[in-house]
Nucleic acid binder design. Structure first.
Length: 573
RNA sequence: CGGAGUGUGGCGCAGCUUGGUAGCGCGCUUGGUUCGGGACCAAGAGGCCAGGGGUUCAAAUCCCCUCACUCCGACCA
């Protein structure tokens, strides 16, 4: 490739509407252009990186026995009605009608399509287990896209679906794919990836893991333990909060607390710690709008995802109390009057005594409430979020909280789709059975963006050799000097037979060429100039500045060959 | 969907308060001089100022509406 022909302007200035590093460099370096919110065109450098990443994914999927297929982007609504997701998934599923008025959707994930294909082709147990995968465009009508390629509406995704005849088989295959994912990130040069337990969300199923690229700008909170290796998304993470204060049981007492509606001021007013209070959080079910009252120890926060699982319904925070008989700010478990409401107690409350809580009466709280004594027949569940200072429930050591970007996820789906969509096979005994499924996804564009987040300097991306758009970037600093130009172009053709090479054949200043080379981020750079050629040499530098040597013209090919081999070995080691 | 903000050549911005027929830097084209970290000189091309409506002799500028985009939140595999 000649830089003079390369489509994509490179900018010196930071684009106004980008704030993430990867977004800035993708725009400045001529990798992507926005077409609409969360919808981008990829220019040649980005497409080349994309293909490299896809090839790594393909190899690893093939290695675990995957068979590549291609599902349609446009799917009939009827297929999604079979699984129930045409109704259950919200407006991120883009629905539309064709000319005859039939409902269609744009594929945002392809479980339905996978089952549709597999149920017609795998009627006998002898076909199992198998995995099919595709690398294809997905569309999700995100309510809020952001950060360049980090969160988009249209994107390329590798999605894989495995089918099994037993849970044991699914589990062992699931572990194989998990390992394959670890290899994919490593080979793509993304080092800082954590495997964590996650919520299954709309996908359904039991077990799920996310692959999180750890970085401050991440959208998800991750809880992990350095001693025992426990790691989970905040949505599902468990912990042991700081131990409660125990003492002698005392009589319940009503106290006047005028206008005191939040835990902090309550604790201060009564001279107790937040952990000596009981906090109430009120939600409402989305299906029938009935209230859900959650009690948790005052120093903890309620985790909405966990509550959702307990009540088995979507919920939203209740802000309008006028319809209920709840006394906002003074809600307490003792003498609670809440017609038709579900009441949930977090496990942090189990056994507590001498607690302060709302008296269910405006401007009054109760002191010395003893949970075992004053609350009969209460079931405790885990609905609290992990907070700073909590310890690991498995080993007791302090937990850490960090942020991350989800670069992949894997799910054990069970029979959620195979059952609802009537997928069956005949087992050895000639009996009809329902297979179970796993599914496995990686967002290619997001992975690309994360690689920039991890590998860059102030001038641009520093692509790992395995995913770099080109392997070698030749800068011909004196294109106006015919001899230099000819030598440079000869070298380009020579190296081009062995490596992926881009050459800067423009008659522009050195600074201009080098700045552009930084933005293109090719790992190996060869500088051909009048100065060096006087000694029969060229300069070989690496984008990360770790190597900078003059090499005889006739030795360049061998030198670069070694250099690239070393770079590859380092990533794959 | 809530909160905040921004829309003026490809990119970054000024002009708007106080209406008078659109400007700067970068980039682009042509010619010349330069040539190892975004060179210089000269001459050019490129914009119905997001769109619609209104006020006015006159609107990028004032008023109303719509749209798009960005950031924060809600939401999300």
């Amino acid at each position: 490739m000649r830089v003079s022909q390369l489509l994509g302007e490179r900018y010196k200035e930071k684009p106004a509407d980008a704030s993430l590093i990867s977004h800035i460099f993708l725009l400045r370096g001529g990798y992507i252009r926005q077409v609409a919110s969360g919808i981008f065109s990829l220019l040649p450098p980005a497409q080349r990186v994309t293909r490299k990443i896809e090839e790594i994914i393909r190899q690893e999927m093939d290695r675990v026995g995957g068979q590549e297929v291609l599902f349609p982007v446009v799917l009939p609504a009827s297929l999604w009605e079979e699984s129930g997701r045409f109704q259950s998934v919200g407006s991120e599923l883009l629905r539309f009608k064709d000319r005859t008025g039939q409902d269609f959707v744009l594929g945002m994930t392809h479980e339905e399509a996978a089952v549709h294909l597999a149920r017609g082709e795998a009627k006998s147990y002898t076909k199992y287990p198998f995995m099919i995968y595709q690398i294809q465009t997905k569309f999700r009508d995100e309510p809020r896209s952001r950060g360049g390629l980090i969160r988009v509406r249209e994107f390329t995704m590798k999605d894989a679906y495995s089918f099994h005849t037993s849970q044991e088989d699914l589990e062992s295959y699931y572990d194989e794919v998990l390992d394959a994912y670890v290899r994919i990130y490593k080979r793509a040069g993304l080092g800082n990836v954590k495997v964590i337990k996650s919520d299954t969300g709309m996908m359904g199923g039991s077990t799920a893991h996310e692959f999180m690229y750890i970085c401050d700008g991440g959208e998800d909170s991750i809880v992990y333990c350095e001693s025992c290796g426990y790691a989970a998304n905040m949505e599902v993470a468990v912990s042991t909060p700081p131990a409660p204060i125990v003492g002698e049981e005392k009589e319940i007492q009503e106290v006047h607390t005028p206008g005191i509606k939040d835990i902090e001021s309550l604790a201060e007013f009564l001279g107790v710690l937040p952990m000596q209070t009981i906090k109430a959080a009120v939600f409402a079910r989305k299906d029938n709008n009935k209230p859900v009252v959650v009690f948790v120890r005052g120093d903890l926060e309620v985790n909405e995802t966990k509550v959702t699982k307990v009540v088995k319904a979507e919920i939203y925070p209740l802000t309008d109390y006028s319809e209920s008989d709840l006394d906002f700010g003074f809600i307490g478990p003792v003498g609670l009057k809440a017609e038709g409401a579900e009441v949930i107690f977090d496990k942090s409350l189990d056994g507590l005594q001498n607690m302060v809580c709302g008296a269910n009466k405006t401007d009054y709280h109760l002191k010395n409430v003893s949970v075992p004594r004053d609350l009969k027949d209460v079931k405790f569940v885990d609905v609290a979020s992990v907070g700073e200072g909590h310890s690991c429930s498995f080993c007791g050591n302090p937990l850490k909280i960090t942020r991350g970007i989800e670069v992949g996820n894997i799910f054990q789906l069970g029979d959620k789709y195979t059952k609802s969509m009537n997928m069956t096979y005949l087992d050895q005994n000639g009996r009809l059975q329902t297979p179970i499924m796993g599914c496995y996804g990686i967002g290619v564009g997001r992975l690309l963006a994360c690689i920039i987040e991890e590998h860059h300097d102030q001038y641009g991306p520093i692509w790992p050799i395995t995913v770099a758009p080109w392997q070698v970037h030749i800068c011909i600093l004196n294109n106006n000097v015919e001899e230099v130009r000819n030598t440079g172009m000869d070298l380009y053709h020579k190296l081009g037979s062995k490596f992926e090479v881009i050459v800067d054949d423009r008659n522009v200043s050195a600074g201009f060429q080098l700045a552009d080379a930084d933005l293109i981020g090719v790992p190996v750079r060869v500088i051909v100039s009048k100065r060096n050629l006087e000694n029969g040499e060229v300069e070989v530098v690496t984008r990360d500045k770790s190597t900078k040597v003059n090499v005889k013209l006739e030795e360049v090919e061998a030198f670069i060959s070694d250099l690239i081999a070393k770079m590859e070995a380092e990533i794959n080691s």
